[in-house]
């Protein structure tokens, strides 16, 4: 239950408790069992102080009941969001979930193995680096997508770090998917920014080991989308072992590398900023993430969640006070002749 007043909001956790409010009227009723019998009233002088003390007693009693009932209903200011300017970015993470991400990342000269439980799996390395990135940047807003043959919109933008972390955990559990449709993945990631007010730097963080082809019409759509939504592209390229750097080769020979270099060259033609972070070891992935962190420190308008404020402690205090005063008042009132 929320009551919106003039500029401030107010709600109750247990609004049903308000049904007990009539209890607060009980002290106002007459009670014969507390009457003192006088043989004759006409002889008595008017007792102003007596009336005052009696009135005060009623006030304290009503206040005690009223505050206790209100405390039971737990009034408070509901959780709200306050716009603030911080430093950070809006980051869409596009996580490659293809089969090759299950390969191990090994040192130069060693043969990569596909081992589901290895901590060296590219998937696991990338996942851990991302989890650290999200944990260290509470002001950033993250959205998460995975892609294989189809894009998976895991979570839209949110400031619930737990949910993003849960998505990153899940990405480590999932099985490699057949197919790598990077084009549709990128378009889905770009569309996360559609109809969203521009509040600060926007990044599409692609975590992929490459090997994806994009056709020409999709390329054009990606270019248009990146420009329209003003998104910078960061690619953490989990390089397959022993492969040359993307820039080194004039004309790459291994077939898989051809597509990676083609991806890289296409990204360079994007109208917005593009960085590639080539990583062939867990350390290199960490360094890439640290570098991205350093870059993305522009002012960002974000909403700070102000947690609910509970007013009931104040009411408990008033209730205690009212009850104590009531007790003191009793000490000054004659109860009976005996």
């Amino acid at each position: 239950m929320t009551l919106l007043g003039t500029g401030f909001a107010f709600d109750f956790v247990q609004p049903w408790a308000l049904a007990l409010l009539p209890l607060a009227l009980l002290p106002l009723l007459r009670r014969h069992r507390e009457e003192l019998a006088f043989p004759a009233l006409a002889w008595l002088p008017p007792d102003r102080i007596g009336r005052l003390v009696d009135g005060l007693g009623r006030v304290f009693a009503v206040a005690a009941l009223l505050t206790a009932v209100l405390a039971l209903a737990q009034p408070g200011r509901p959780e709200s969001e306050v716009p603030r300017i911080g430093r950070g970015a809006e980051i869409v993470v596009l996580f490659d979930s293809s089969l090759s991400m299950d390969d191990e990342m090994v040192k130069r000269g060693q043969l990569p193995k596909r081992n589901r439980d290895s901590p060296l799996r590219k998937r696991n390395i990338a996942r851990e680096a991302l989890a650290r990135l999200v944990a260290r940047r509470p002001d950033d807003r993250f959205a998460l997508l995975m892609f294989g043959a189809a894009p998976f919109r895991v979570t839209p933008f949110s400031q619930h770090p737990d949910v993003i972390q849960a998505g990153i955990t899940a990405a480590g559990v999932s099985n490699g998917l057949p197919g790598t449709d990077l084009g549709r993945g990128l378009l889905a990631a770009i569309s996360q920014f559609d109809h969203r007010a521009y509040t600060g730097s926007r990044v599409l963080l692609l975590v992929s080991d490459g090997a994806a082809e994009i056709d020409d019409s999709t390329r054009q759509q990606i270019r248009d989308g990146m420009a329209r939504n003003r998104i910078a592209l960061d690619w953490i390229y989990l390089r397959s072992a022993n492969w040359p750097r993307l820039e080194d080769e004039d004309e790459p020979r291994p077939t898989a590398l051809i597509t990676d270099v083609a991806m890289h060259r296409f990204f360079k033609t994007l109208p917005t900023a593009y960085h590639v972070f080539e990583a062939e070891s867990p350390d290199a992935v960490s360094r890439a993430v640290a570098e991205i962190e350093r870059q993305q420190n522009l002012p960002l308008e974000y909403l700070e969640r102000v947690p609910r404020r509970d007013y009931s402690p104040m009411l408990y205090l008033f209730a205690v006070l009212a009850c104590t005063l009531l007790f003191v008042q009793r000490a000054y009132v004659l109860r009976s002749w005996t």
């Binding site: 979930s97 979570t155 949110s158 619930h160 737990d162 955990t169 990405a171 559990v173």
Partner: peptide
């Protein structure tokens, strides 16, 4: 199967969980 979200606590993440479900 593809795991999208590992289990997260419901009441603190309610709206984000529903948004992910809607997707």
């Amino acid at each position: 199967i593809v795991m999208l979200l590992a289990p997260v606590e419901v009441c603190g993440n309610y709206s984000a969980l529903l948004a992910a479900l809607a997707n």
